[in-house]
Structures are given as C-alpha cells and as structure tokens.
Design a protein around this nucleic acid. Sequence first.
DNA 1: CATAAGTCGACTGTTTACAGTCGGTAGTGG
DNA 2: CCACTACCGACTGTAAACAGTCGACTTATG
Lengths: 219, 219
Amino acid sequence: MAGLTAPLLGLERKSLREQALSALRTAITSGELEPGRHLVETELSEMLQISRGTLREALRQLEQEGLLSAGPRGRLSVRHLDEKEIRDIYAVRAALESLAARTLCELPDRQQVTESLHKAVDAMDAAANGTLEERIESDLEFHRTLCRLTGNETLLHSWESLEGSIRMSIMFAGLEKGVSNMSVDRHKDIVAAIDTGDATLARKTILEHMDTAAANLVA
Amino acid sequence: MAGLTAPLLGLERKSLREQALSALRTAITSGELEPGRHLVETELSEMLQISRGTLREALRQLEQEGLLSAGPRGRLSVRHLDEKEIRDIYAVRAALESLAARTLCELPDRQQVTESLHKAVDAMDAAANGTLEERIESDLEFHRTLCRLTGNETLLHSWESLEGSIRMSIMFAGLEKGVSNMSVDRHKDIVAAIDTGDATLARKTILEHMDTAAANLVA
DNA sequence: CATAAGTCGACTGTTTACAGTCGGTAGTGG
DNA sequence: CCACTACCGACTGTAAACAGTCGACTTATG
C-alpha cells in the first residue's frame, strides 16, 4: 500500500478531492487495499498528502459507490463481496444495460451510435493482446459507452455508480475467471444486435452476456 | 428558506452530517430550495448550524444523488429537471423496479413478500385521505419495499440513489399532475401480479405503471 | 484466580481559523 | 469610452484543536 501515488502528479485541473478519489478507487479495485481492510483517516490523509477534511469528502463518495462499507462508529473498511452480492450486482447491471440496448435500438439517429460502438470494439481488439488490466479497461469502456450513447444521463450516472462494484466483482472473483467473458466476439454480437435495430434481440443478447459474465465470476 | 429547521431536534444518534443531509433533501424535494437556486456554503452552514466541513460532506452526497448539479469552479445549485430528464429518470426507475418484480416472483419463500406488500398497500389506503405529502410518502415507501424485499442490496441501493430524483420529478411536474398515478388500485394490481408468481406478468404490470406515471408527469 | 474498576490510546465527529485562487465589479485615470 | 487596478465574494484546501467513544490494558480487590 506504500505505493499510493501522490495525487499531485496528474493534470492540474482536477481538484484534490477528485484526485484522491481516483487514487483510492484504483487502490481498492486493484487490490492494493484488500477487501476487509480497515481504513484510518489520518493514515490515508498522510499517505495521499491531503487534509482529513478533503479526504473525508472523497470517502463519503466512495462509500456511496459501494466500495467502502461502514462499521460501528463510522469505521470504514474496504467492502468485501460474496458470491450472492456479485450475482446481485450483475442483476442490476443487466437491468441497466438492457435498458441501454433497448434505448439505442429506438434512437432516431443510429449512425453515430453504430460508429462509436464499432470504435469501442476496435479498442477492445487492440487491447486483446495487452495486459489484463488494459483488457478490463477497454471492456468497461465499451459498456460505459453503451450507456453514454443512449443520451440518458441518469442511466449513465447509475451505471457509473455501479462501476466500482463491478470492478470489485471482477477482482474478487480472481482475475483468471474474469477473463473468459471479455472476449471481443461476444461484444461484436452485441453491436450486431443493436445494429439490426431489433430491441428485443439486443436486450436478449445483453442479458445473455451478463448471465455468462456473472456465471463465470462466481463459478 | 428561513424555515430550514435546526438539525438538532431529531434523534440524537444520527450524526450532524446525516441530519444535515435529510434537512437538505427535504428542503430541496419540498421546493423550499427551488430548482436552479445557487447554494452558498457559508450560508447553508450557518443556516443549518453546522460547520462548513461537515456541510461539504453532505453536499457531496447530495451531488451524487443527483439533487445538486455542479457548475464551474465547484459552484453547486439545485438541479433543474426538464421533461426529457424526467422521462429518463423514469426509464431507469422502470428498469430497476421491473427487475425487482421479476426477482420477487422467483423467490422461494413468497409468503413474507406477499404479506409485506399487502401491508404497504394498506398503508397507502390509510394515507389515501391524508395530505398530498403523506400519499407521496406511502407511494414511495411501497416501491422502496418492492426493492427491499428482493434481498438484493445493490438493487435497493441503486433505487434509493434515484429516490431524490424521483421526488424532484414529482415536485417539478407540479403536484396536481403527480396525484393521478398514485391511485391505490394500480398498486393492488402490481401486488396481485406478483402474487401470481408470473414474472412476465409482474414485469409487464410494473412497466405499464411506470409508463403511465411518467406520462402523467410530463403531460 | 477471577473480576470489577480505572486508565490510556486510537479514532472519528466537528469546529474554527486561515491561506490561496479566481472571477466579477466598481472606481479611476487617460 | 476603454483599460487598469483594487477589492470583494465565494470556493478549495489546510492546519490545529477538542470532545466523545470504545477497546485494550492494567491494577486493585475479594
């Protein structure tokens, strides 16, 4: 955990709080802060080189994202996911993304959508031989794009609130398991289904994708 | 807005931050702080009788709940919803609650579920002649119960993250419009559908309910 | 030896005061 | 009228402090 990098190095435009937020998110979803780990404010603030006040704002946000769980007396620790919780998270994720797929099919101007999705899949292709982290990243970026393209800000926001939990699920399940459902082909199927404009088909394809993904994680 | 009550009056076990949180949530969803209103930290902290630091933690949380929107340089203001956003919110809400309905149908022990839902509907019946606020409250409580009974904490959490936006939608649309879709009968239909155990029917009933609710709000 | 009481330390909750920054606004002089 | 300056309001971030609480440890006592 000594490697929690100073937040100062990034772009100067982000507030310290946001920098701390990403640093902590990364630390947690990368396993640097292992599940169940107890977090001490003074320790973290010193480690991140920010004041306790600023840190606490970031912690509140992480708590609401489901990356931290609160114990008695405000004690925070890194959330630990069991298999049921992973299934639950993926059920919600499936509900959100199937809404996204359906919405995309019903959009008037689908040219832009098709184009962006193909670009996202291409990015996955490019990352296919990269590190595991790169593949996870491009995978999540694809699904985030799916939500963003709907133009439904609330949908995107809800998905992003879940993103941390999704990352933890993948991490918790052990990286080996998580790989199989990140195949580029399955995502091409999704894009193809959306391209047809058949909302029912698109929805079904996404749901199946989520099902196998969740099944792989808890297998 | 002078009526923002001191947060000290509630139960003593809640932290000041939580008290401020509910006070602000209430103030916003009740319209005491009107949409678009610019929030000044020092003003609010003085009004709520809490320090800026504590207040800021609460503001972060409200921001993530979608009740506040951030302008340039961290400027916060009460979020303003247009009709598209209300439709978007209800689309996400429908996705979540239809998942809830489906999940409830597939639950092994449905005795408890049926019982709790009937109690929630009874509460709506009891509130039917009460104030508009009481009716909204019992309505939301019904839908929250729907999500809670699934046992899917993530689903409940996602729904609760949306609750503030839902309240704003109802408020923004003008209370008159919002009343029609709060009829107890429609909710009895939902319970009945879930009682049959037919997931498809339950899902369809919820989706229709959400559709008409959203249509009423933006009509 | 077991237990009850007292003490200490670690944390969190919260407040206060202060430094720095940025943008808008009011004067002020040309 | 325009440009420059000075100032003010508001936000971000920081540092230092104090209270309350709870667990662990110690100690006295029967």
